[in-house]
């Protein structure tokens, strides 16, 4: 038992580490494959001495293997290089922007849970009725809509037409409402669909019928028995979606001029700030792998069979 747990966790760790290494190497390669970035950065008319100086500054005059090892060493010591555009360390810039994105993702995810879970439960307990069809269609709609467009339409309605809420920037809780609502659409739909699926599986189990037969109230059966069965998949999705949103909120942040990581990434691309783009990709991959690990740990705590 013990040895097998060690084997399993070890294997999972090794595969996560391999994933991370491949992701890091990919990010590195993407930065080198495009040829000499100094031409793109300085423009074709730049004098050779200036380009040479930039090459030296970027470390491009070193052999590729040395560059790669330096890069890996940097990643594991928390040094993600220097931005070309801001003349600051990439790590500190990411750290500056992260709280904004965290705020947005946290609020969006909370909203997604608050609406998505009841919606899924509603659909599962009334399987086959119009409630179910309505909730399921709504959830599928949430996965089909370009969320940033949904955000734009919210701006039109609540900021432009009605003037109730600010259209962009951050600052007060009022500023957070529309972006968080927009952010919640996709995970909400995902959570609703998942809740419905795992709850209706659970409700079809024989032990639910026997619990009902023993006179346990329907509400108790639904929440105490069926819902606990759905919790783990929901938790998994919440954690993984958080990982996606932390770095994938680019379009939503752009719509609301939200000063988070996504905006930083866009700026970096517009100014061809390759080190910064690479740093953000690496950061995203690190977060994602760590959250995957968290999911595994949660699984082994909650599900005794995995242990």
């Amino acid at each position: 038992m013990k040895a097998s747990t060690v084997r399993r966790v070890g294997g999972r760790l090794a595969s996560l580490f391999a994933s991370l290494l491949i992701a890091l190497s990919l990010a590195f390669l993407l930065g080198r494959l495009s040829g000499d970035p100094t031409a793109t950065i300085l423009g074709p008319m730049a004098p050779p001495e200036q380009r040479e100086a930039l090459r030296h500054q970027l470390g491009l005059d070193l052999p590729v293997v040395v560059q790669y090892l330096d890069y890996l060493k940097g990643v594991f010591t928390g040094d993600l290089g220097q931005s070309l555009q801001f003349y600051q360390s990439n790590t500190s810039m990411i750290a500056d922007r992260l709280p904004y994105t965290l705020q947005l993702v946290g609020a969006g995810m909370a909203l997604a849970l608050l609406v998505g879970v009841p919606l899924g439960v509603l659909a599962a307990t009334r399987e086959g009725t119009w409630w179910d069809r309505g909730a399921s269609t709504l959830a599928l709609l949430g996965q089909s809509v370009p969320v940033f467009w949904f955000g734009m339409m919210l701006v039109v309605l609540f900021a432009v037409k009605l003037g109730w809420l600010p259209a962009g920037q951050s600052g007060s809780p009022r500023h957070l409402i529309l972006p968080a609502l927009t952010m919640s659409v996709y995970p909400m739909a995902h959570i609703a669909r998942l809740t419905r699926a795992s709850m209706s599986d659970a409700l079809a189990e024989p032990y639910i019928d026997s619990a009902r037969a023993r006179g346990i109230s329907t509400r108790r059966v639904v929440w105490r028995h069926a819902f606990t069965n759905a919790m783990m998949p929901i938790l998994t999705i919440v954690v993984l979606q958080t990982g996606i949103l932390l770095s994938g909120a680019v379009a939503v942040e752009y719509v609301y001029s939200w000063p988070g990581l996504g905006q930083l990434a866009l700026q970096a691309i517009q100014f061809r700030d390759f080190p910064l783009v690479q740093a953000i990709v690496v950061f995203g991959a690190l977060v994602f792998v760590l959250l995957n690990l968290l999911v595994d740990v949660l699984h082994s705590i909650v599900d005794p069979r995995v242990r």
Binding site: A23, G248, V250, A265, I269, I280, A285
Partner: peptide, 14 residues
């Protein structure tokens, strides 16, 4: 394990 939007950004940036 790679958030895809970042992969996209990295490729397009280059």
């Amino acid at each position: 394990a790679l958030p895809f939007i970042l992969v996209a950004l990295a490729i397009i940036a280059n």
